[in-house]
Amino acid sequence: MAEAALNRFGSVPAPSSRSWLLWGGAALVGAVIYAASRGGTLPGGLLLAVYALFALLGIALANARSRVLPGFRLSLAVTILMLFLIILIPLSAVFINTAKLSWSQIWEAISAPRAVASYKLSFTASLLAAAVNVVFGLILAWIITRYRFPGRKLVDALIDLPFALPTAVAGIALTALYAPNGWFGSFLEGQLGIKVAFSQLGVLVALTFIGLPFVVRTVQPVLEDLDTEYEEAAASLGASRAQTVWKVVLPALYPALLTGFAMAFARALGEYGSVIFIAGNIPLVSEITPLIIITKLEQYDYAGATAIAAVMLIVSFALLLAINALQVWSSRRTERS
């Protein structure tokens, strides 16, 4: 990375025709936005954001040395432009709009009893679902990589079903399964008196479904790469099988388990489609936070929706950073061994 920091004096490459095109485009977009803002319909925040984008792009291009592999400028321009226009500028709207609210407005929105109840439910259910996934994800990853049994390849292929199956489909399927007259519901509710659908337990079931592949797919490759030599070494040193698994195999899997847990947790926090059908959405009991945002939007309470979204985004970003740090940590660990 450091090499890019060095300016190459002596032979600065002439600006290519593409970069002129880019600057022209930037000026054009700037002019359009300026014209729109003159009409009084555009807030300064957006204007700033767009100019920040092009400033960034300009700096990046000016710093770019001529490189052996072609396409650096073009790919940088495309990547940054799309990233800003589609993701970053719209996302910044949440924070810019929240900043426009007064503290009391924000506090009122995010501390309303229904919102607080939803945080508790979303947080607890996501945490529990991720924990369930760690246990069963580990078992599934273990049996897929270490054992041979009929249907193993099918299990391996279908593990990703929660990724591929639209969440709405998962939602109605789980609801129908656990409804009082459903395949599982009739037994659980009729025989055992456990109410799953339209309760907090239903939220847990849906979030467990949605998070399962994360743990399996982060643990599986580590388990596959883990040389059985370590286990053989432990065995040759007199460790029992249980001791070997506990002291040699599991510690090697911790980073992957933790990463899988964090990913499943992060996904569960934001999940909407699979939960809303089975949750029953009883205020103060089984409403998840994303649903609160939708409810507020439907009541045209954009300010309230935005404030809660800002809270959720901050938590998500913190989780993203944590996951990144975890991955750096785990790759360092594997390098050392």
């Binding site: 996302l91 909407y272 489609g273 994303p290 959720m312 998500s316 996951i323």
Partner: peptide, 8 residues
């Protein structure tokens, strides 16, 4: 975008 709730 992976870490942002679809609702957001």
């Amino acid at each position: 975008p992976f870490s942002v709730s679809p609702v957001i």
